[in-house]
Amino acid sequence: MAEHVLDVRNLRAEYPSADGAITAVDDLSFSISKGECLALVGETGSGKSTVALSILRLGKALVSGEILLDGENILSLSECEMQRIRGRKISAIFQDSMSGLNPVITIGHQMAAVIRLGNKEARRQEVKEKCLSFLSSVGLDDVNRVYSSYPHELSGGMRQRVMIAMALSAGSQSLLVADEPTTALDATVQKGVLALLRDLIDEKGMSMLLISHDLGTVAAVADRVLVLYGGVAMEEGDISLFLASSLHPYSKALLKAAREDLFSLPVSEETVPGCRFAPRCDEAEERCFLSCPPIYNVGERKVRCWKYGACDGCSSFCQ
């Protein structure tokens, strides 16, 4: 069994609101091994980004549970200790590159600050060379111009590549959290960036939590996939099994929507005491609306659906 870089146990994240707390993530457990990429997929509002922010201890959610990074529970760390971890052990890339960069500081200065986190004594020339090499490693062309540019002088695609370069430049990381890293990029550029991310996993043994709603991206980069719906894990398993024969009706619908033009899931505002997906599920039965299914193991995979609780092969649940 490979060592786990990240172990999330019973994560629960709530946003306080005037009408009581809103649960964004409910009792979520997963782990990522060294050199592995786990993809979180799901629709807007499924809690994907909240998971990412919770792991970084950013965001406004009230988080409970355990997040073990290299065996250390980061939820019990002080903010000061957390600062040490961010950028060194965990790096993050977000979707919106404009808000990730300081608009009034040049790219070069912002990157230099990150590089100096890892190496305080570095000489200025050395830092600059490092900046330029990271910038060219993400496929940027005119690195000297980019180095001395302000964020608004670059295109969205270029800014996103700068963000990735910055995330990489912090030095030895255990975990890269990539929240929709290529959503804002062009298809021609996206491929290059994804290949770059995959190389980091394969060659440098980096672990990655990839968050994406694009199953094409997920299929290309991820080793395993975790499907979230309404903050709850619906299915977890190997990517190729997921693509070939997904288990949960929600996963099937997501894949169908990605593969077929003009297929969309029914929309429902209804909330039921049972399975959260039941109002939109075309395979839902009566019990689905009444009680929430537990997670069943199907081979190596996990699925939260009553359909798999019957006597079809998983003897432990047959009694």
Binding site: D141, L194, R198, L215, G216, T217, A219
Partner: peptide
């Protein structure tokens, strides 16, 4: 450059003549 949610996507990523930037 379109990535499809199919099992061969990883290979498609590899054999990409990934775009040079203008």
């Amino acid at each position: 450059s379109v990535l499809l949610p199919e099992t061969g996507a990883r290979e498609a990523l590899r054999d990409s003549g990934s775009a040079e930037f203008p």
